[in-house]
Amino acid sequence: MAAVDAEVAEEEDEEASETPARRRIAGKVLVLYVALPALVLIGAGAGLYMSGIFGGGGEETPVEEVVADPVFYDLPDFLVNLSGPPPAHYLKMRVSLQVTDAEAVKRLELEMPRVLDGFQTFLRDLRPEDLEGSQGMLSLKEELMRRLTLATQKPLVTDILFREIIVQ
């Protein structure tokens, strides 16, 4: 019986030693022949999809923005005397307003007496030094825009364009 027990023990040892080796080989085969090709195919498919060749459906048509043509409104010429010590200085100015749309022009024409009054009172308080350089023009433009917004009570004008400015 000892001989039979020894044979059974040897067979169990052989089966036990073969099973982990077979499992390791089976795991490597599974990774090499199944998982790795699957990852390569998934990566290639994702790359083709992202490039638009596969499943991208072709070129997208660009959406064109509809940009409205600018609407301009010319104000009457301004001729005012500037404040300050003698000799007297004068400012002649021609201005165009860029308005939001054609409806804003109608609204602006209704508010024009208020706009002109605000411009005249501001321009008469200026001194010749206030209009020197680009900083003077920028501050003049900002103040005129502020007075326009106050006069019309809602923003109808998007920009003020100086067509002519003469200081004598």
Rank of each mutant, 00 (worst) to 15 (best):
A2H: 09
A3P: 00
A3C: 04
D5A: 15
E10C: 01
E10T: 05
E11H: 03
E11C: 03
D13H: 11
D13F: 11
E15G: 08
E18I: 10
E18G: 00
P20T: 06
A21K: 13
A21T: 05
A21M: 10
I25V: 13
G27N: 09
K28I: 05
L30K: 06
V31C: 11
L36N: 01
V40H: 03
I42A: 13
G43C: 08
A44I: 07
G45T: 15
Y49E: 04
Y49P: 01
Y49A: 11
G55K: 02
G58T: 12
T61E: 15
P62V: 08
V63T: 15
V63I: 15
D69C: 02
F72V: 06
D74Q: 11
D77N: 13
L82W: 06
G84W: 03
P85S: 09
P85V: 07
P87L: 08
A88E: 14
H89K: 15
Y90T: 13
L91G: 03
M93Q: 10
V99K: 09
E103M: 11
A104K: 02
V105M: 11
K106D: 11
R107K: 15
E111C: 03
E111D: 13
M112R: 14
P113G: 08
D117F: 06
T121W: 05
R124C: 03
D125F: 01
L126S: 01
L140C: 12
M145N: 03
M145E: 11
R146T: 09
L150V: 14
A151W: 15
T152E: 01
Q153D: 14
T158C: 01
I160C: 03
L161I: 15
E164G: 02
